[in-house]
Computed example of a mutant assay.
Amino acid sequence: MELIQNTDDLSAYLIADEVIDHHHPVVRETAARLAVDAADSYEYARTAYAFVRDTIPHSEDSGELRVTWRASDVLRLGTGICHAKAHALAALLRAEDIPTALCYQRLTGEGGGHMVHGLVAVRFNGAWHRQDPRGNKPGVDARFSLDGERLAWVPDPASGERDYPALYAAPHPAVLAALRSAPDRPALWKTLPGSL
């Protein structure tokens, strides 16, 4: 699948905003701590990915009811769904000048129907590489890779699932609106879009 930038301006994928707030002290402190032993930007990206994937539990897996959407809150509170974890990883990578986009998949939800799943793409060696920091669990073994994707899920087109090829510099408005308005995670599951 060819990934498509929503803008030709690569600097758009380095911007800090209200969601990917890599100017925030919590993000800066976390990035600095992760960068200490990294020999280069690739090693830093791999370390930041593992940090978000492994130390910030997906709120569905942990039973956490709070909904986070801003990167600094995800890092501070240590919780988030896939979209929130993607925002946190994007902020950590952008804090170290690694172009990072948000991207999405349409997957079958556990209760039937479809849901939009969030992940990121990083720019290395002149190409975009998708990474899924959702968090591993039985049946899910996502890994950081620039040599073939190792995502949490591979969409099944026969089930109406798909990869969206667009690379967003900011969260998709429908996803962000659901995250921002949900009083808790059970309510969020009812309002997250089923497609983009």
Rank of each mutant, 00 (worst) to 15 (best):
M1H: 10
M1W: 12
M1L: 15
E2C: 12
L3C: 00
Q5W: 06
D8E: 14
D9K: 09
S11T: 15
I15G: 01
A16V: 08
A16K: 02
I20C: 11
T30C: 12
L34A: 07
A35S: 15
A39Q: 14
E43Y: 14
A45L: 07
Y49W: 13
R53V: 03
D54C: 04
I56R: 04
S59G: 08
L65M: 12
L65N: 13
R70F: 06
A71P: 00
D73M: 04
L77K: 13
L77R: 14
G78P: 06
T79F: 07
C82W: 03
H83I: 04
K85Y: 03
A86Q: 01
L89D: 09
L92W: 01
R94Q: 06
P99E: 01
C103S: 08
R106P: 01
L107A: 01
L107Q: 12
E110G: 03
V116T: 11
G118E: 06
F124Q: 10
G126I: 11
A127S: 15
R130H: 11
Q131W: 13
P133V: 10
N136K: 00
N136A: 07
K137T: 13
P138S: 15
V140K: 05
D141W: 01
D141G: 06
A142H: 12
A142V: 07
D147T: 02
D147I: 08
E149S: 05
A158K: 13
D163A: 13
Y164V: 02
H172L: 03
A174I: 07
A174H: 05
L176S: 09
R180T: 13
S181W: 09
A182T: 11
A187V: 10
L188F: 01
K190N: 14
T191Y: 07
L192C: 02
